[in-house]
């Protein structure tokens, strides 16, 4: 670290400014190097998983993506079942978390008295702070038994509805796609609701006030004024939540059942990309390892695209605000 002395040594001004410029250059380079490390970390993660999974990705190609058979005996691996499980659990999580997050954001921006907003908002955000392993424990020891006690009722009621009934038939295991989806929903709820809350607050007060002045109800202001104004950012927030749900590992591993099946019932066990990696990576060699790393690459690409959409959507609102 260069130290600039403050002693009143007679020094040529020119030399001093040259030195300053040199220090500035060094400083700038160090900073830039650190910033590029971020870039390197991300690119490295993408490239190393692409490299590690090359045998399967380039050797099997589409067959890897489209095969539902995960067969270590024959050393043949297909990604369809983990992809299916990842998408289904994440979709369940979104279906449940989006309306609830919307409700929470509505409550915290328009309904709750001012003194309540801070603490309640903070409490909801604490949900995001709980480590995922704790969600896993709670899920396995508390929520799974709870689900297995209500699943017979689900099968007997929802299970009889034509078309969607199939989704709710099956033995009451407690663990399975639905349970994993609900746990994921709780985990991503704080992310989506805090984005919604933040963007709802960006709506200019005069817009809302004008609508109220015309006699709109709170709901109408939200639905007809706030939501259209913030639509892209709200979608961005939802995608942000989706990105979280796709990559979550520990909580899902405990409550999903780890089975390579594609089933029509949400009560049945399944597997996700991340839980397959967590379960099998330490024992995998050869093609098996390649298949798992290739799964990791897929997950990375999918979350990258989802987060890309999220950021672009969020940026649109920021642009409109003139940021």
């Amino acid at each position: 670290m260069p130290v600039i002395s403050a002693e009143p040594i007679a020094r040529d001004n020119e030399q001093r400014s040259r030195e300053d410029a040199r220090h500035d250059r060094i400083f700038r380079r160090v900073l830039k190097f650190c910033a590029l490390l971020v870039l390197a970390a991300l690119l490295g993660a993408a490239l190393s998983t692409l490299w590690g999974g090359r045998e399967v990705l380039f050797g099997d190609g589409l067959r890897f993506l489209l095969s539902d058979s995960w067969n270590p005996v024959d050393d043949k691996y297909g990604a369809l079942a983990p992809i299916f499980g990842t998408l289904v659990t994440s979709l369940i999580a979104l279906v449940l978390a989006v309306p609830v997050s919307f409700g929470i954001a509505l409550f915290l921006t328009e309904i709750a008295p001012a003194w309540m907003r801070g603490p309640v908002g903070a409490a909801i955000e604490l949900l995001a702070g709980i480590p995922s392993i704790i969600y896993g424990m709670w899920g396995l020891f508390v929520f799974v038994p709870f689900m297995s006690s209500i699943e017979p009722a689900l099968s007997n009621t929802l299970g009889n509805i034509p078309l969607i009934g199939k989704l709710f038939q099956g033995p009451p295991l407690g663990l399975g796609l639905l349970t994993a989806g609900i746990v994921l929903a709780v985990m991503i709820l704080p992310f989506i609701s805090s984005v919604m809350r933040e963007v709802f607050q960006t709506v200019p007060t005069r817009l809302k006030e004008s609508s109220y002045a015309l006699g709109s109800t709170t709901w109408e202001v939200l639905w007809d004024i706030v939501l259209p104004y913030t639509r892209s950012a709200v979608i961005g927030g939802i995608f942000l939540g989706l990105g979280r749900a796709l990559g979550e590992t520990m909580a899902v591993t405990f409550v999903l059942g780890n089975s390579y099946n594609i089933t029509s019932s949400l009560l049945m066990p399944g597997t996700t990309i991340s839980s397959s990696i967590a379960n099998e990576f330490n024992e995998a060699v050869g093609m098996h390892r390649s298949a798992l790393i290739a799964l990791g690459f897929l997950l990375f690409v999918v979350t990258f695209v989802v987060l890309l959409i999220a950021r672009l959507m969020l940026r649109q609102l920021a642009k409109r605000e003139g940021k």
Binding site: A35, G44, A45, S48, W51, I293, G296
Partner: peptide, 26 residues
Amino acid sequence: GASIRFLNDILLSAPSIVLGLFVYVI
């Protein structure tokens, strides 16, 4: 700067298990 900031946001939400794979490989 814009692209690093953007990629940093992606890294922020990247699946942690994939980062584990990355460190395993490197």
